[in-house]
Every structure is written in structure tokens, then in C-alpha cells.
């Protein structure tokens, strides 16, 4: 790994008695796209805010570009572009005015910002909406504008807190495409998500968080290799029969998870296992063979699914 842009050791954040982030360690390298994957309340946003120098840690250490956010908040924020979980665009202003004034908050020159705005409108595909007030934009457009706004200061690190939550599949794919482009340009991305497909698509490396702790760390592929099998067979027998058949199935695979609506069987060859089940005349109502995903990693690590 090359030089670490962000480095945290024993990073902890407590709200009263409640520990939101519990002694986590991680490093983010330059140019990397780093993910925090975890369910609601895992502590992802809290961690993001500490990195962004808008929340103070309770204990532990963290450096961003070698600096401590407690001493150099404004200097660190000058390096960052922040896309918060909830859009906080300036609803009294238009699209271009939002970009313009945000640049002014960084102290940038008017001429520089005006040129930059054209580039950003093109990037966010918002040229036609340039003079429209923010309220009149769709959810996906607002998100793209928030990302464009975060880029006005040409940040080294882009912090994206659940960039695509609440968007329809098409809007998500447009956003992913934009984020890929940024990655190619060498921008370091820090992304939180509770979508495993998003993490697989966007992250070079990620940590799986749950209840303030880091459960595992690695590339999506590494994590799947370490914590899951190559394939998964999903079968449903209907909620009453699931229970009755489960013991028989358990003997047929290395690991099994019983979810309320379905049974997941972890194996190297899903089709072969399905053959075997059908040969035993067990007849599931539905069956599906798929590759293991980060969802399975999460299930293995915590015994729970990512999206409840």
C-alpha cells in the first residue's frame, strides 16, 4: 500500500453511554476507493463525520493527510468534498447558484468557479437544469448536484455517505458511472453503503461494520473468498416446511443459514447440490443458484442480513 491518506487507530465515538464507533482501525491509501459497509446504526456516518472534521472523536487517533482534525479542521475540510447522507442543498438557490456559492465558501475566485461550474454541470448531466431551483429536481438529480457541489473545490478525497440510497436502479447506475470516472481521475473515494452490490461495484477495499465495530476487512473478492463459498443455493419450501426439512439439508452442505423466508446453502457447486435435493424428492417451491456476495459475508459475520 502506498502512503495512507487517512489513518485511524482505536477510533472511538461515544454519545453519552452509547458507543457509536468502537475502537476501529483502518487506513485509506491515495487513489483508493474505500468502503464502509454495514447495516443501519453501524456507525458509518459517525465515522464519516469524524474524517470530515465535523465531529470530534472521543478517543483514539486519526490523521487525514497527516493532520489531526482536532487541530486542523478547516485545513482538512479544504481537501475534502462531502456528500452527506441527507442532501443539504441550498433550496433557496438554483443549480448553478448552489455550485457557485459553495465554491465561495472555500474562498475560491469567481472566475475560477464559473469555469468550473460548466465542467461540473456537464459531469452531473444537469446542463438543462442549470437555472432551476433545487426543489424542482428529482432525487437522482439532487444527488448528482450534491456530488458536483462537493467537487467544486477539486478535493483530493470525496466522502460519499450512502450516495445512492433512495434512488431507482437507473439513477443508481448513472451515479455509479460518474463515480467510476472520478476514480479514474485519481480521486480517493470513501463510500458508505448498505448495498452489497454497490460495495462490490465501487470499492477496491472495504470494511464490514456492525454496532460500531469492524468485523472484517479486504477487497470484495477477498472477503467473499475468506468468509463464504463460491456459490449459494437459495431454496424455499414455504414457511412451515422450511423448519421440517432444514435438518436434512444441513447435512448436505458445509454451512447453512435459515432466514425467515428462505434457506441459504453454501457450497462450491450449487447446481450439483440442487440436483441432489431434487433426487431426494424434496421439491422446493423455488430455487436459485447464485454466486456468493458480500451479503453472505455479512450474514456469516453477524448472523444478520444487511437490510432488515
Amino acid at each position: 500500500m502506498s502512503e495512507a491518506l487517512i489513518s485511524a487507530r482505536g477510533l472511538t465515538k461515544r454519545y453519552g453511554d452509547f458507543t457509536a464507533v468502537d475502537a476501529i482501525d483502518f487506513d485509506v491509501a491515495k487513489g483508493e476507493s474505500f468502503g464502509l459497509l454495514g447495516p443501519n446504526g453501524a456507525g458509518k456516518s459517525t465515522t464519516m463525520r469524524i474524517i470530515a472534521a465535523t465531529s470530534q472523536r472521543t478517543s483514539g487517533t486519526i490523521t487525514i493527510l497527516g493532520r489531526d482534525p482536532e487541530e486542523h479542521g478547516p485545513q482538512i475540510r479544504a481537501h475534502l468534498g462531502v456528500v452527506p447522507q441527507q442532501d443539504n442543498l441550498d433550496t433557496e438557490l438554483t443549480v448553478t447558484e448552489n455550485l457557485f456559492i459553495y465554491g465561495r465558501y472555500f474562498g475560491l475566485g469567481k472566475r475560477f468557479i464559473r469555469t468550473k461550474i460548466e465542467e461540473l454541470l456537464e459531469f452531473a448531466q444537469l446542463e438543462e437544469k442549470r437555472d432551476v431551483k433545487v426543489d424542482a429536481l428529482s432525487g437522482g438529480m439532487k444527488r448528482r448536484l450534491t456530488i458536483a457541489r462537493a467537487l467544486v473545490s477539486e478535493p483530493d478525497i470525496l466522502m460519499l455517505d450512502e450516495p445512492t440510497t433512495g434512488l431507482d436502479p437507473q439513477a443508481r447506475h448513472i451515479l455509479w458511472d460518474r463515480l467510476f470516472r472520478l476514480k479514474e481521475l485519481g480521486v480517493t473515494l470513501v463510500i458508505t453503503t448498505h448495498f452489497m452490490d454497490e460495495a462490490e461495484q465501487l470499492c477496491d477495499r472495504l470494511v464490514v461494520m456492525d454496532k460500531g465495530k469492524i468485523m472484517a476487512e479486504g477487497s470484495p473478492l477477498e472477503l467473499i473468498k475468506t468468509y463464504s463459498t463460491k456459490e449459494v443455493l437459495e431454496v424455499r419450501f414455504g414457511s412451515d416446511r422450511n423448519k421440517e426439512i432444514a435438518p436434512t439439508l444441513r447435512a448436505m452442505c458445509s454451512r447453512m443459514e435459515e432466514l425467515p423466508d428462505r434457506i441459504l446453502m453454501y457450497v462450491e457447486d450449487g447446481e450439483a447440490l440442487l440436483e441432489e435435493i431434487l433426487n431426494k424428492k424434496l421439491h422446493p417451491t423455488t430455487s436459485l443458484v447464485r454466486r456468493s456476495s458480500l451479503e453472505d459475508v455479512f450474514l456469516r459475520l453477524t448472523g444478520r442480513t444487511l437490510i432488515e
Binding site: G73, Q75, F106, G107
Partner: peptide, 25 residues
């Protein structure tokens, strides 16, 4: 010219965490 240089220029001032000298923005 850039955001980082502008912020760094104030890094040693007293109260730089509270005030960036840009109320006019």
C-alpha cells in the same frame, strides 16, 4: 488559487478553527 492554499494560509492564526475570515461569503 486553490482551497487548500487558502485554508493553509490561516493555519497558524488564533481561532482559525472558528473563523476563516469569510463571513462575506
Amino acid at each position: 488559487s486553490n482551497a487548500v492554499a487558502i485554508a493553509d494560509a490561516r493555519a497558524n492564526r488564533v481561532g482559525h478553527q472558528l473563523y476563516a475570515g469569510r463571513a462575506r461569503a
